[in-house]
Design a protein around this nucleic acid. Structure first.
Length: 878
RNA sequence: GGGUGUGUAGCUCAGGUGGUUAGAGCGCUACGUUGACAUCGUAGAGGUCACAAGUUCGAGUCUUGUCACUCCCA
């Protein structure tokens, strides 16, 4: 027996545990159908589930469950990312609580500590994914630092290095002074800030009175200046080009050069050039062969090349201004809107810094990655994201992959005594290579840098399937079917996976890439911890059930749009689950059990034929929409069918049968009900896996689990079977509407006549009069050919006229108002039809069918108008 | 500055290739009958589809422009 109330908490976790322990998430490798695979975007091992994950993983689970029910070999490959910076920060923070730093432990011990942390606290998010219902094959869970995946990383690295696609270079990179590491362009966020523009003068060499005034936002970097630039088109200043000027305080002589970087319209037209601390200046320096002077330590304090060694940039800035003022060289300070780079993890100001770093030749790898999108081997859904992808790929820069961290994949690079580089997959091979190179055994020193986390996630699509080994899973599931992720991750991850996969596998990592939007708060604001507007999916699941949250995500997911979280709506989908629950209880109470001998094709009763056809129609819609990633349309198709067709109409219509005496009709109806409920559970299962399973397990005897039940395919829908009941529904709605408008009490049982009904309508009427009477609360309904009398309220129903004899209780005032309103409406439509049909070019040029339809409507409206006018006429004197 | 979206009912949003009277959920109004469900039912109100011009027999849908906002990249 089903409980009276729907309480998801009672069964969700129990059902999940059964799936997992029974191995229901493992692919059926014996299936002779296609393979379908998704690799999960690996959440950070430090992560906790947020609404974005809930959306992303709900969509993936829907696709996975749908394809599993289609009988394919289905793999959802799960795992987590070691998340270099994020994880290291978490562990360092814990150490700080004990008053320790990572240096107190040393590298080896620290890494050990991180692993321990991972074992104890790293599984939070995967537990939460289970709560959401994600049907990942957890027996295959991977971690980017697993031995297998690490081997893949080393292998790819060595391969790229030997192909000349990884190189070491001293370059200006984004340096995070807090973390003490280089970061990639993508890990830097540019923030608009109101800063200051400082105007001050550099004396011209060999002149007592001449100066050049420069404008800068960072005066403290002047000790690293190696030139001042002026545009050669700058009429006012170009006479200074070729002369030298003197950096005050340190009295260093630097040249004044001509370069287009100096915009005559901006500032003073003269720009100080600091090639070691500014990306633009670096380019200028390259053009003019300027020396590079580094003025910063790795922690962003000033170094020995400045007079302010040890000061922070802020302190040095104040000091510099003070000194310049004393020297009488400061002109003015203005407010100046500017953009300042911050580290997205550390939150501190990023400094461009000259350091030795390792780079991947991304521009070369991007070529293949672009080609396969151009020729459609990999398709973005929605397609418009192609543009974003191409735009980024076309302008891609070498990718800085080295990080000065401890937690991560240490680069497989060894240095010989003379710094010769040996890049091999392990130390033995490196030693062997060195011995060959030097002609003797030598000691090697390993590169201490680790790799950018995205390097290993770039291999995710094939490393998780077993590469570099040749495995059955790699054979079966690569390339994977679809990747589901947010647009914010296209550059970080999608692009890198495309590059790495094309480089090594020569095949796309996934055939399609479905991109969804962001989950925002109720007001459309981005959710963030700092704003305090985050909503915890676990709390939502606790309150409304995982199914309600999942259905919300699916129903709100329309291509190319963000989702605003709405608790009212989630509650609405919980109500939907309740509705289904109660419908199943209704079936249970009326002994609607699945009947093995039942075939829906043999149903005889109109209501049953109708609901079967509707169910098949809904199945088809869900299927088509899921095939084209139209999640909201798919979800709404089930919703409308369950609530609108099944609960609102079908259940109401079969009550007289189930409560009646005709045993044959009863039996057919019970079996049909059970069949339809079954169908609902099947097509709803991908969206609401828990409630559907709970009902599946508790309504009838089953030979197969719902998670493996067969999805309906290629059904013949009996369109004809829908017409009769649709006709009755229209009629009932019309009668209800009339009753309501005429303020007829719900309890009053009426008699209704149809005048002027065609033969077909009369047939419907006699077959369905019981249903119509029950649902419209009538005493009786029948055809009528007598005169219409003034005490009959009159409605228009298709070709016929609907008559409600009210025997002296007609509210004539209400009736007149109603009829007048009706008349106004008809006149409005008639005007529209008239306008169209009197336009000769419409009649000539529009397709015949459209014109014909318009004529039909016009004549129908004319007939209705005549009826309404007659009715008004009849009661004019009352 | 470059690029990309978005603007439809009080609110949150649907409306693949142009063709009935533009839909849903929530909210609102009125009513509510014994039995699946008040986490419900029935009926109803509410929209000049941001604005302007254009293409077309016909535009929420296509084109251009304007305004407002979002996001991405500089």
């Amino acid at each position: 027996m089903l409980e009276k109330n729907y309480t998801p908490k009672d069964f969700e976790e129990k059902i999940y545990a059964d799936w997992e322990t029974s191995g229901d998430f493992k692919p059926d490798m014996r299936s002779n159908k296609d393979a379908f695979a998704i690799v999960i975007p690996p959440p950070n091992v430090t992560g906790i589930l947020h609404m974005g994950h809930a959306l992303d993983n709900t969509l993936q689970d829907i696709l996975i469950r749908y394809n599993r029910m289609l009988g394919k070999k289905v793999l959802w490959q799960p795992g987590t990312d070691h998340a270099g910076i994020a994880t290291q920060m978490v562990v360092e923070r814990n150490l700080a609580k004990e008053g320790k730093t990572k240096h107190d432990l040393g590298r080896e011990k620290f890494i050990e500590t991180v692993w321990k942390w991972k074992e104890h606290s790293g599984g939070t998010i995967t537990k939460q994914l289970r709560r959401l219902g994600a049907s990942c094959d957890w027996s295959r869970e991977r971690f980017t630092m697993d031995e297998g995946l690490s081997r893949a990383v080393r292998k790819i690295f060595v391969s790229l290095y030997k192909d000349g696609l990884i190189f070491k270079a001293k370059k200006l990179v984004n340096w995070d002074p807090k973390l003490g590491t280089a970061v990639s362009d993508l890990e830097v966020v540019q923030k608009d800030t109101l800063g200051k523009m400082y105007y001050y003068r550099y004396p011209i060499e060999g002149s007592d009175s001449e100066y050049i005034t420069i404008a800068t936002t960072r005066p403290e970097t002047m000790f690293g200046d190696t030139a001042v630039a002026i545009s050669k088109d700058n009429e006012k200043l170009k006479h200074l080009i070729g002369k030298n000027c003197i950096i005050p305080i340190i009295n260093k002589v630097i040249p004044i050069i001509a370069d287009e970087h100096a915009d005559p319209e901006k500032g003073t037209g003269a720009v100080k050039i600091t090639p070691a601390h500014d990306f633009n200046d670096f380019e200028v320096g390259k053009r003019h062969n300027l020396p590079l002077v580094n003025i910063l330590n790795p922690d962003a304090t000033l170094n020995e090349n400045t007079p302010y060694e040890g000061m922070t940039t802020q302190e040095a800035r104040a000091k510099t201004i003070e000194e310049l003022t004393k020297l009488g060289l400061m002109d003015k300070i203005e407010d100046h809107p500017m953009v300042i780079p911050y580290g997205d993890r550390s939150g501190v100001v990023i400094e461009p810094l000259m350091t030795d770093q390792w780079f991947v030749d991304a521009p070369t790898l991007a070529k293949e990655a672009m080609r396969v999108v151009e020729n459609g081997e990999m398709e973005f859904v929605p397609k418009s994201y192609e543009k974003t992808y191409f735009e980024w790929m076309r302008n891609i820069q070498p990718w800085c992959i080295s990080r000065q961290l401890w937690w991560g994949h240490q680069m497989p690079i060894w240095y010989g005594p003379d710094d010769t580089i040996f890049c091999e997959e392990n130390e033995e091979e490196a030693l062997a290579a060195a011995e060959k190179h030097y002609g003797k055994k030598v000691e090697l020193r390993r590169e201490t840098d680790v790799l950018d986390t995205w390097f290993s996630s770039g291999l995710w699509a094939f490393s998780t399937l077993g590469w570099p080994d040749k495995t059955e899973y790699l054979d079966t599931f690569y390339p994977t079917s679809v990747l589901v992720t947010g647009f914010d991750i296209i550059f970080f991850w999608v692009a890198r996976m495309m590059m790495m996969s094309m480089y090594k596998m020569k095949q796309v990592p996934f055939k399609k890439c479905y991109i969804h939007g962001l989950v925002r708060d109720e007001k459309g604001q981005k959710m963030s911890k700092s704003k305090g507007n985050t909503v915890d999916p676990m709390a939502t699941i606790e309150k409304y059930g995982a199914d309600a949250l999942r259905f919300f995500m699916a129903a709100m997911e329309t291509q190319g749009r963000d989702i605003n979280l709405s608790e009212a709506r989630i509650a609405g989908y919980r109500n939907f689950a309740t509705k289904l629950w109660n419908a199943a209880r209704f079936g249970e109470m009326n002994e609607c059990r699945l009947d093995a001998s039942y075939n829906p094709k043999n149903a005889k009763l109109a209501v049953n034929k109708w609901i079967i056809a509707k169910a098949q129609e809904a199945s088809k819609e869900v299927t088509e929409n899921l095939n084209s990633f139209r999640f909201s349309d798919a979800a709404n198709a089930v919703y409308q069918f369950v609530w609108g067709s099944f609960c609102d109409w079908y259940i109401e219509m079969i009550k007289p049968i189930l409560y009646g005496e005709n045993e044959a009709d009863k039996a057919e109806t019970r079996a049909t009900f059970a069949w339809v409920l079954d169908r609902i559970l099947i097509i709803l299962h991908p969206f609401m896996p828990f409630i559907t399973t709970e009902l599946w397990n508790n309504t009838s005897e089953r030979s197969v689990k719902l998670i493996h039940a067969a999805w309906p395919e290629n059904e013949q829908i009996d369109e004809q079977a829908m017409k009769e009941i649709d006709w009755a529904i229209d009629l009932i709605s019309e009668i209800r509407s009339l009753r309501s408008e005429m303020n007829i009490p719900a309890s009053a049982k009426l008699t209704v006549y149809l005048k002027g009904a065609e033969e077909k309508s009369k047939q419907h009427l006699s077959q369905l009069d019981k249903i119509i009477c029950t649902l419209a609360r009538l005493e009786s309904i029948g055809a009528y050919e007598g005169e219409i009398t003034p005490d009959m309220v009159q409605g228009v129903f298709k070709e016929s006229t609907l008559l409600l004899p009210l025997k002296g209780v007609v509210d004539f005032k209400a009736e007149k108002e109603r009829l007048k309103k009706e008349l106004d409406n008809l006149n409005k439509y008639l005007e529209g039809y008239e306008r169209k049909l009197s336009n000769p070019s419409f009649v000539e040029r529009a397709p015949a069918a459209v014109v014909e339809e318009e004529r039909r409507r016009q004549s129908e409206a004319k007939e209705n108008k005549a009826k309404v006018e007659a009715a008004l006429e009849r009661i004019a004197n009352f």
